[in-house]
């Protein structure tokens, strides 16, 4: 079964590259360009992974992550945060809110894909332990 990834990113060009990359790698993708709609879409689609830009219009990555971890559908969902800020403070805050991984902009595609693969395989390992179906690209 194909892994489904929800990408919350407002910059269209970055989104375009991400869409291309993720589809080429065999993932299914849901693109959400606005922070206010992320939570609803996650609830509706229940993806296997969320890629979250820290600086989204409408509602920023910090607030989204906070709400996501409070919701029952988002508690264990792997979240990879894209941040243009390499600052320790932001990372620590995201970490405290429950981010699983960070990729700092400007990222290399390889690095991003490797992080995605890592998070998904960790989720699969957990999933099989609990008897859930495996997801792979």
């Amino acid at each position: 079964m194909t892994a489904r990834i929800l990408v919350a990113e407002d910059e269209p060009f970055i989104m375009e590259s991400l869409s291309f990359l993720l589809r080429r790698e065999g993932y299914e993708l849901t693109a959400v360009p606005n922070g206010t709609r992320v939570l609803d879409r996650v609830q509706a689609e229940l993806p296997d992974l969320v890629i979250l830009d820290a600086m989204l219009p409408g509602k920023d990555g910090f607030a989204i992550l906070e709400d996501l971890r409070r919701a029952d559908f988002g508690q264990t969902l792997p979240v990879l945060v894209l941040t243009a800020k390499g600052q320790e403070a932001d990372r620590n805050r995201m970490m405290a809110l429950g981010a699983d991984a960070f990729v700092t902009k400007p990222f290399s595609n390889q690095q991003l894909l490797a992080e995605i693969a890592r998070l998904l395989s960790a989720r699969n390992a957990q999933g099989s332990a609990k008897g859930k179906p495996n997801h792979g690209p």
């Binding site: 910059e11 060009f13 970055i14 590259s17 990359l21 243009a84 902009k105 400007p106 990222f107 595609n109």
Partner: peptide, 9 residues
């Protein structure tokens, strides 16, 4: 980021 990602592709 946009340039790097597209150039890498």
């Amino acid at each position: 980021t946009a340039i790097r990602s597209a150039a890498e592709i």
